[in-house]
């Protein structure tokens, strides 16, 4: 099984949705898309082996993959969608009046990269923009960098982290998305300095969304070795960019990009993942 299937507890949520164990998901025959992106569902350096099923969030990912000759794709929507399905009765999204403040997700780095940007400038922009209490959610790497974390704390923001995504099935916070869900549904707004997965998640639970501020970038993008994608995202999805956004437009795009209209039934997922014993 591809170890990225466990990141953020994706495999766990899908397993629970299929009526199987949350704690010990069975190996998925294939690889799951683990975050929203402007590619074929996987990172620039991630090339799943030939003949290995690929489970992506949206038809846009599928089309991009087909364009470069990749096959064996199934569009199933984001694991987040299935969490929403699981939560709809036990922990429904509260009314808008019961939600307050903004949760802000600064653009984050990853295990093998480094983000370059001006956090102080971003903090100033958040202060100028948001009128309610602000929660800043840092990725675990920045959360464990005191020099970054302290800046946001000193600015008077509540600073949190949803957990670690884990590597090689070690250290994964399997309830990462549960925590993210709990935080997002208590805030009225979800914002970021980049169009990221969290923004789509926010839109899916009825939050106002906004993308503004210093977009920052990966350090290695400065030497043009990695495609940044920020400008492309602005061109493709202008409806998300700005301090105020149109809820209806945002919602329509979110349905497409998260594949909320492309969810599979538990039986289909079991069949796709090889979780069904067939003979």
């Amino acid at each position: 099984m591809d170890t990225s299937n466990h990141w953020y507890g994706h495999a766990h949520i899908l397993s629970e949705y299929c009526g199987l164990s949350f704690e010990e998901p069975r190996p998925i025959w294939g690889v799951l898309q683990h975050g929203w992106n402007l590619l074929h569902g996987f990172g620039p350096g991630h090339a799943p082996p030939y003949g290995f099923p690929k489970f992506v969030w949206s038809h846009a990912n599928l089309r991009r993959a087909q364009a470069i000759g990749w096959r064996d794709y199934a569009v199933i929507g984001a694991p987040w969608n299935y969490l929403l399905e699981l939560k709809k009765d036990t922990e429904p999204v509260p009314e808008a009046a019961e939600r307050e403040g903004t949760i802000f997700y600064p653009f984050h780095t990853w295990d093998h990269g480094q983000v370059s940007g001006d956090h102080d400038r971003l903090i100033a922009e958040i202060r100028d923009t948001e009128d309610g209490p602000v929660t800043v959610c840092l990725y675990w790497i920045e959360y464990e960098m005191p020099e970054v974390r302290r800046r946001y704390e000193d600015a008077g923001f509540r600073v949190i982290c949803h957990g670690r995504r884990g590597t090689l099935r070690q250290g994964t916070d399997t309830r990462f998305l549960h925590k993210q869900y709990a935080e997002q549904i208590r805030h009225r707004r979800v914002a970021s300095n980049r169009l990221t997965t969290a923004i789509f998640y926010g839109a899916s639970v009825g939050s106002e969304v906004a993308v503004y501020g210093d977009p920052m970038t990966f350090s290695d993008v400065r030497d043009a070795s990695v495609r940044d994608g920020n400008e492309q995202a602005r061109r493709l999805f202008p409806e998300f960019h700005g301090v105020k956004t149109d809820a209806e437009e945002v919602r329509a795009t979110t349905v497409r990009e998260l594949g909320l209209d492309a969810m599979a039934s538990p039986a289909e997922l079991r069949a796709l993942f090889g979780w069904e014993i067939t003979g």
């Binding site: 599979a264 039934s265 538990p266 039986a267 289909e268 079991r270 069949a271 796709l272 069904e276 067939t278």
Partner: peptide, 11 residues
């Protein structure tokens, strides 16, 4: 066929 059936929860 099994997969198509599974799309409507027919196992």
């Amino acid at each position: 066929t099994v997969l198509l059936a599974a799309t409507v929860e027919t196992v």
